[in-house]
Write a protein that binds this DNA or RNA. Structure first.
Lengths: 181, 181
DNA sequence: GTCTATAGGTAGATAGAC
DNA sequence: GTCTATCTACCTATAGAC
């Protein structure tokens, strides 16, 4: 609280005057960031698009979001490991929370129709999420190992979207060749 | 420290007598777990095997390790976001630390030879790691969303290894069909 | 609204008896 | 080695002057 007050150019007392408690302050900030995040994911997941196009959108938007909020994944993961129950309960209450069921359904349908390989929709969904999120969660480590600064790392992540989209497409398409959708 | 002492059936004083400080205790436990983890990864990464066989081994061993230490990823990520510099420095000092350079080289060579698609080796390496690690980092959330207990979730992760290996293979092979290596 | 000063409580660490 | 009691530091939160 002292450090926050210092950076804001005020004092601890005033911080409590505005936010009542440290926890209330944290929740307000965190919820605000997470809600923005959640809303955009909700939108792309709900869009009415062909499967592969939708996956491309997810990868692009997800990466964009995390590039703009590189510290967010750390907070989310921390909350997840200290307050998992409450955190999940709060997500469930959001009116515009990410709902993967539509994407899972599309994966199922396209698989049945033979337009993509017959993969397990849940595992595939999880794989897409993994490919997008993990590099940001592990950023503090990877960035230091490759000896680059944050901005360079984020640029590497933007380039990565092409590799990821290509990777997923190739893994899903029956022919195995990336197509132009 | 109080809770640890209680669970150990001793008192705080004795805990300090043995470990000197809370930080020293944490580091001892954490380093022990991480070193085991690091050692096994080092081994599979160093093995002299064909590329796809090696990737299968990585996926299997990584999953196995995390199934046996489901709490470890949480601690690692937390350390990563609070002590990144020191954490990375300590990893670098380990005599048997995971070294991805050999795998990256193999990806490059096989790509050049046309035996796999010409992918970016670093991004591919990162993708493999993502597919293995993320589901364990996000476990507290996913487990609650699917309403299953930890043991069921870990079983789901063991099944997942097949989906992941298949996913990677298909994404890498020029023909796009998973082969029997 | 904004500040200073301080109360209240918690937790890591130590002293000292046994 | 093991315990109890206590010290010390820190940090959240509040009281009260302006």
């Amino acid at each position: 609280m002292q450090e926050i007050a210092d950076r804001a150019g005020i004092n601890k007392g005033l911080l409590h005057y505005y936010f009542r408690s440290k926890e209330a302050l944290f929740k307000m900030i965190f919820r605000e960031a997470f809600t923005r995040f959640s809303k955009i994911l909700h939108t792309v997941l709900s869009e009415d698009r062909p499967l592969l196009e939708k996956i491309d959108r997810i990868v692009d938007e997800y990466t964009d979001l995390l590039c703009q909020n590189p510290a967010l994944p750390g907070f989310i993961v921390n909350e997840l490991h200290t307050n998992a129950d409450q955190f999940v309960a709060e997500i469930m209450q959001l009116p515009e929370r990410p709902d993967p069921s539509r994407l899972i359904l599309q994966l199922h349908i396209e698989g049945q129709a033979g337009r993509i390989r017959a993969v397990d929709p849940f595992q595939t969904m999880l794989s897409i999420l993994s490919l997008c999120a993990f590099p940001f969660i592990a950023r503090p480590m990877l960035q230091r190992m490759v000896h680059i600064d944050q901005e360079t790392y984020l640029e590497l992540m933007r380039q990565r979207t092409h590799a990821v989209k290509d990777f997923i497409r190739t893994a899903l398409l029956p022919g195995g060749q990336p197509s132009e959708l």
